[in-house]
Nucleic acid binder design. Structure first.
Lengths: 241, 241
DNA sequence: CGGCAACTTGAATCGCTTCAACCCGAGTGG
DNA sequence: CCACTCGGGTTGAAGCGATTCAAGTTGCCG
């Protein structure tokens, strides 16, 4: 039931819908609910906070376009990006009452977000949300292993492989190539490094022909091989897909 | 409705029940379901895996007694503890179909576990589970910030404060004192350090009278002050409690 | 063309690791 | 009852990966 990839002025299949549908095949009612929510998409300027640590989360939202990050900042200015939020990812989804944000969420690019339809709308939507939450947790575990036991170059490559994998789900990566809106300093803040060292390691990666990073576009020359070299396994949370 | 703290041969309130009830006040039916599940407690020997990364999770369980850890091991032997599982914590709870374990879970001590009653048993139980999951994610975020942007000594103190906070919920810590079953090497594997360096930093912490660690017993002399010094805020996931 | 953010480079320094040795208390078996 | 072993903790010295600081360079945008 694939729609044609190009169908006139309208989009083909919004990355957000594509991701959620890839996590759990959506029934017509679920897809309809999301398409309806997409009509209420709003724009968020770059650097604006969507959530603030310790404050109520408000209604859950879906990222339609752009990148955001969960961030923690210490009093002395040290900054750590905890995770990145990409198109199709959910913001502020919680199953318990009166949820408080456990981290601040900041727009890394100009952002488009829409309301997340209630999980009760359709069982397939609830499943997609649950898959999304489980996937997010799995990536947090990856991030911990990255920071704890990988060297600088391994950390960088591992994170880029994660981006490739996640963007591919949303249809935003093709054969190891994708758009990345991050500066080297932002990469450093995610990887527990300094921007100077990220710079040097990226040069080494380019020298070793592992990847290409020109402007905003990254190409991983052989994702599968690279994943094997640094011992990274793709994230899988369910036997179903 | 507090039961007396000492009531003959029977336990007062099992740490696991105490923790879940602290996360969300349990209705009688929920508490009954857990008490019933506790009758089916089984023992797991030390070093045994309860879950294996990539394998189906099986039925969810509650830790009744002892400590476990989620662990990732690289081919070259590098080991990273992703998180620790303490009495009252849930193992393998997932909201989506056919869940696969996203990490191996290993018993760090001899363990007692019981089946986790289905969330559908009682809405208060479902809420407690949701709170538990949210809390777990919050601690993963803490762990990321620890590994990414804290120095060795800060990491150690931050983790010990987490243990104090979590064990207190289960009634297993009193005024900054609790039993810890970890070796310095296991601490190191959680904190992305070497055991040699953990040793040196612990000596420094003792020298500075921040804590005491004799045998299996840890005492943090002034948890609130220490938390302030290293910029740690208690984990809070809901405005309700 | 001027200004600013991001990227690049070199040199000195430091936090942590590595390696190797040693100590100590708790089992264990002769 | 003591020698033996073994896991965990302790210590010192050398080395390395990453940081720090400071000075360019590049490229984009007004």
């Amino acid at each position: 039931m694939n729609r044609p990839r190009l169908s006139g002025p309208a989009f083909t299949l919004a990355p957000a819908v594509r991701r959620l549908n890839a996590l759990a095949p959506l029934a017509e009612s679920a897809r309809g609910a999301i398409e309806a929510a997409l009509q209420q998409t709003v724009s968020i300027p770059i650097r604006r906070d969507l959530l603030t640590e310790g404050k109520p989360t408000g209604a859950p939202r879906i990222i339609v376009q752009g990148w955001a990050a969960r961030v923690r900042i210490q009093v002395d200015g040290r900054r750590q990006f905890l995770s990145f939020l990409l198109p199709g990812d959910l913001i502020g989804l919680c199953a318990h009452p009166d949820p408080l944000a456990t981290s601040t969420v900041t727009a890394l690019t100009p952002l488009k977000v829409c309301p997340a339809p209630a999980a009760e709308t359709c069982p397939t939507l609830a499943t997609a949300y649950a898959m999304s939450a489980a996937t997010e947790e799995a990536y947090l575990l990856d991030q911990i292993a990255r920071l704890g036991r990988l060297h600088a170059l391994e950390r960088i490559l591992s994170l880029l492989l994660e981006f490739d994998e996640r963007l591919d789900l949303a249809g935003l990566a093709h054969g190891g190539t994708f758009e990345i809106p991050l500066t080297q300093e932002q990469m450093a803040d995610a990887l527990g490094l300094t921007s100077v060292h990220v710079n040097r390691m990226l040069q080494q990666a380019r020298r070793e022909a592992k990847l290409q990073w020109t402007g905003r576009s990254v190409t991983i020359h052989d994702p599968a091989l690279l994943a094997k070299q640094i011992g990274r396994a793709p994230v899988r949370v369910s036997a179903g897909i």
